[in-house]
Computed example of a mutant assay.
Amino acid sequence: MSFLGLRKWPTPVMKPMWPFMAAAGITFYLISVGQAKGIRSPEYRNDPKNPYAAQLAKESAQ
């Protein structure tokens, strides 16, 4: 018997969602690695639109 639509056992959430959560984690990691490599590439290192240009110039000066 249910009380206000609540069942005795909770609906499983983690078990059916683990592939999507794993894929989201892998995607997030790969995008962040790609971005880090992209901002440090020689083509965009000295681009004035690069928000990390000052930081990269300071690193290369050392």
Rank of each mutant, 00 (worst) to 15 (best):
M1D: 08
M1C: 12
M1E: 09
M1K: 13
M1T: 12
S2W: 05
S2T: 12
F3Y: 13
F3L: 13
F3V: 15
L4I: 08
G5T: 10
L6G: 10
L6W: 14
R7E: 14
R7F: 11
R7G: 15
R7A: 14
K8S: 04
K8M: 14
K8Q: 04
K8A: 14
K8E: 07
W9C: 12
W9K: 15
P10D: 13
T11Y: 12
T11D: 03
T11V: 14
P12K: 14
P12G: 12
P12T: 14
P12N: 12
P12R: 13
V13N: 07
V13L: 08
V13A: 07
M14C: 10
M14T: 07
K15C: 04
K15V: 12
K15W: 11
K15S: 11
P16T: 05
P16S: 09
W18R: 10
P19D: 06
F20M: 04
F20C: 01
M21Q: 11
A22F: 06
A22I: 08
A22W: 04
A22T: 13
A23L: 13
A23Y: 01
A23V: 08
A24C: 05
A24Q: 04
I26L: 15
I26A: 14
I26T: 11
T27F: 02
Y29K: 09
Y29H: 11
L30G: 04
L30W: 07
I31T: 06
I31C: 06
I31E: 01
S32Y: 08
V33G: 01
V33A: 08
G34Y: 00
G34Q: 09
Q35V: 05
Q35E: 02
A36F: 09
A36W: 07
A36Q: 03
A36T: 09
K37A: 05
K37S: 01
G38K: 05
R40S: 02
S41F: 09
P42K: 13
E43A: 09
E43H: 09
Y44G: 01
Y44D: 00
N46L: 14
N46W: 03
D47I: 03
P48G: 08
P48D: 06
N50I: 01
N50L: 03
P51T: 00
P51S: 02
P51L: 00
Y52I: 00
A53C: 08
A53R: 06
A54Y: 03
A54V: 02
A54P: 00
Q55W: 11
L56C: 03
L56P: 03
L56R: 02
L56F: 00
A57Q: 15
A57R: 13
A57D: 07
A57P: 03
K58V: 02
K58E: 10
E59S: 04
E59A: 08
E59Q: 10
S60F: 02
S60T: 08
A61T: 06
Q62C: 02
Q62V: 09
